Amino acid sequence: MAGTTHYVKIDKTKTLAEEPLTGHNRWHEDIPPILTVDPGDTVVLDVRDAWDSQFDKDTTNDDVGRATTDLVHPHTGPVYVRDAEPGDLLEVRIGPTRCDRWGYTVQVPGFGFLRETYQAPHITKWDIADNWATSEQIPGVRIPGAPFMGSIGVAPSTSLRETYLRREAELLARGGAVKGPEPRGAVPADPAIADEALRTIPPREIAGNIDVKQLTAGTTMLIPVATEGALFSVADAHFAQGDGEVCGTAIEVAATFTAELRLRKGEARRRGVQGLQFFRDALATGHGTTEPAWSTPTRFYATTGLPIRADGTNESEDTSLAAANALHQMIAYLVDEWGYDEQQAYTICSVAVDLKISEMVDVPNFVVTAVLPLDIFI
């Protein structure tokens, strides 16, 4: 028997701070739910863009340089699922994600995989029609849509949140790239939550900002429940993304997300599931970037990277360095062969190029491949 369908409408012309009862931009177990559903119910959730209206059609590159990560990501939720409790798996059967007709890709200084190389702010503005994205700023390219939510997750328990804060503080002390609790821009603004809440940028065992482009309609997610009611939320809608989202953003949009929420009682505990798992057991159709013709394109150009530094130093089993080298080679190809400048090329890589680990066994040199589908060029 089909469950009930629940709708959460938001005013997308307003920021989350202007409608604070519609969501949150931090993770904390005490954020009150905005909706309660039964297992088997469907939710249809309006979602703001990832940077919470900091960018629009009039935004300049200089404006991007003034953006703050304190406002990302405005989640819609939490949704309380009756009978959900720690040890369960929340089954999220993803339905359509309907995107607005305009989006953007930004390069924010200090953010992105190649942030030490590309430090200038930059924005690409996309028009979306008939499931394709085009931009006057990157002529000759048409990106196929495969909409999904970059951030989908559940709330941590108190003990998990404290564990995450402790391990991230230890990582920060070792020089890691970590953003700790920050009350500025936090929603909810209540200091009891904002002062100790988790930032939404890193994904964790509760999922969150995983940016997995295969989470399109027809995919089912299995998320370990950490607290009573699961407290499910979504944010960060993407019209399209390459595997890696390397410049820090995809084609970012506001959207409406649909999913059916079910429970697998006790399955996380029984199976020892400690993080997100997902599957799709039916062939999807269409022309999106997660469809077979695009995920393994017939026409493509690929570059490879090894863990070798520019000065010739050979590192051992360094996948990040190999990925960076593959990406630098792809950017050079796009500049030399197609005539784009480096920031245009970096954007193309973020929205269309898939980084793939080709081998992790031939020590010391792992191989990462960057694959560009040539059918994006028109």
Rank of each mutant, 00 (worst) to 15 (best):
T4Q: 15
T5R: 14
I10L: 13
D11I: 02
K12S: 03
K14R: 14
E19L: 02
R26N: 02
R26G: 01
W27A: 13
W27Q: 01
H28T: 01
I31A: 03
I34E: 06
T36R: 15
G40K: 11
D41C: 04
L45T: 05
A50C: 02
D52N: 13
S53I: 12
Q54Y: 06
Q54S: 07
D56Q: 02
T59D: 07
L71R: 07
G77I: 10
V79E: 07
G87A: 09
G87N: 14
L89H: 10
V92R: 03
P96D: 15
D100L: 04
D100V: 01
T105C: 08
T105V: 05
R115F: 12
E116D: 10
E116L: 05
Q119N: 05
Q119C: 06
Q119P: 00
P121C: 07
H122F: 15
K125L: 15
W126P: 00
D127Y: 10
A133H: 03
S135V: 01
I143H: 02
G145Y: 06
F148T: 12
A155V: 01
L160R: 09
R161H: 02
E162S: 11
Y164D: 04
E168R: 11
E168T: 14
A173G: 06
G176Y: 10
V178K: 02
G180I: 08
P188D: 02
I193M: 09
L198S: 05
I201T: 11
P202G: 09
P203K: 06
I206T: 13
G208R: 05
G208D: 10
D211M: 07
V212D: 15
V212K: 11
K213F: 07
T216G: 06
T220D: 13
M221C: 11
L222R: 15
P224T: 06
T227S: 12
G229M: 06
A250G: 10
I251Q: 06
V253F: 09
A255C: 08
F257C: 04
A259K: 08
E260C: 04
R262H: 15
L263W: 08
R264F: 01
G266W: 13
G266S: 10
R269T: 04
G272N: 08
Q274Y: 09
G275I: 01
Q277R: 12
Q277V: 14
D281M: 15
H287M: 10
E291F: 08
P292V: 03
A293K: 13
W294Y: 12
W294I: 09
P297T: 04
F300L: 07
T303P: 03
D311W: 05
D311N: 14
T313L: 13
N314F: 04
E315I: 01
E315G: 00
A323V: 05
D336R: 12
E337Y: 11
G339K: 07
E342H: 09
V351F: 09
S358L: 11
V361M: 05
V367T: 14
A370C: 12
L372N: 04
I376G: 03
I378S: 11
